[in-house]
Simulated scan of single mutants.
Amino acid sequence: MIEFNEPVPFHLTRNLQAFFSHFGVEGLIVLAMCATAQAVVSPKQSQHLWHHLAMFFRDELLSWSWRRPLGMPLAPVSLKPVDFKKKVTTNVDHVIGRIKGIAPQYISEEVWFCL
C-alpha cells in the first residue's frame, strides 16, 4: 500500500513446474502453503508474525522513500511519522488478512453433522 504499487503474481518457471510435476503443483504445494498459513496465524505465532512483518515493511518503506521511481522528483519523499506508522500497520494487517484467507478453517463436529 504505497504510492508506487505494482502487483507481482506468483508464477513457477517451466523448469520448476516440470520438477514438481502436476501432482506436486496441484497437490503438495497447495497443501504445504495452507498448512504453513494455518501454523503462522495460530494464536501463539500471530504476534511474532506481526512484529516480523512490521520490521520488513518498515525497512522496505524506508528504502522506497529514498529511491526515485520513474516520474518522481529527485528529492526523497518525506513521510510524517504518523503516516509512516499507519502505512506499516496497514500493510501488515493486509498481509495477515491474506494469510488468514488461505489458511484452512476448523469446523467443529457439531456443525459438520448439522450440514
Rank of each mutant, 00 (worst) to 15 (best):
Q105F: 05
I99A: 11
M1D: 06
I29F: 02
M33P: 00
V41Q: 01
V82A: 13
M1L: 03
F23N: 01
I2G: 11
W50C: 12
K100D: 11
L62I: 02
M33W: 03
H11A: 09
L12I: 01
P9E: 09
R14T: 08
L53W: 09
M55G: 15
L79S: 10
P7V: 11
Y106A: 07
L53V: 02
R68K: 11
P9T: 02
L16Y: 10
S21V: 00
E60W: 05
P81D: 02
R14W: 08
V88T: 04
R98H: 15
V82F: 15
F57V: 04
I107E: 11
A54N: 00
L28K: 01
G101I: 04
K86S: 15
A103G: 05
K85L: 06
G24K: 00
V111P: 05
A54S: 05
P104N: 03
A35C: 11
H11K: 13
R98S: 05
V25Q: 01
I107Y: 01
L61W: 13
S108L: 09
A39R: 10
F113N: 08
Q17C: 02
A54M: 00
W112Q: 05
V40R: 00
H52N: 13
N15H: 12
F57C: 14
W50N: 12
L49D: 05
Q38N: 09
F56E: 12
R98E: 10
W66F: 07
T13F: 12
W112G: 03
R67Q: 03
L74V: 08
A35I: 13
P43C: 12
F20I: 01
K80D: 15
V111K: 03
C114Y: 05
F10Y: 15
V25R: 00
T89K: 15
I96G: 07
E26K: 11
K100V: 07
Q17V: 01
F57E: 01
A18Q: 02
L62A: 09
F19T: 04
H22Y: 03
P69Y: 12
L31F: 13
A18W: 08
G97V: 04
A39L: 13
V88Y: 07
S65P: 00
R98C: 05
Q47W: 06
E60S: 06
W66S: 02
T13P: 04
G71R: 02
E3A: 05
A32S: 10
W112I: 08
F23E: 00
F4Q: 11
E26A: 09
L16S: 07
L115E: 08
H48V: 10
E3P: 01
E109L: 09
L28I: 12
Q38K: 11
P73I: 15
E26M: 12
S21E: 15
S63R: 14
L70G: 02
E3V: 02
R67M: 09
F57M: 06
M72D: 04
